[in-house]
Amino acid sequence: MNQELFGRLTLGLALGLVQFLVMGVATWCYVRHMRERVDPIVLRLRAQQREQEREQEQARVAAGRRFRAW
């Protein structure tokens, strides 16, 4: 930890700076992963849900019409 790399910059200090870099890279990877892998699934699930709701609605309306016609 106390080995000096450049002048007074020791290995420990350099590792501390590298940590900030790693965090930045991790954040970027996370955002990319979510945008490319997870968001499409979420959109599809949401669309599916809406589809189901619409079908239920239609089924209800159709039943109602039949009832009125009778």
């Binding site: 930890m1 106390n2 450049f6 002048g7 007074r8 420990g12 200090l13």
Partner: peptide
């Protein structure tokens, strides 16, 4: 940065220990 680090450890009256764990 190097000058900042070395001045800090000089003025800490602790010498090199200031920048060591």
């Amino acid at each position: 940065i190097d000058r900042l680090l070395s001045t800090a450890s000089d003025n800490s009256a602790l010498g090199d220990r200031f920048l060591e764990p």
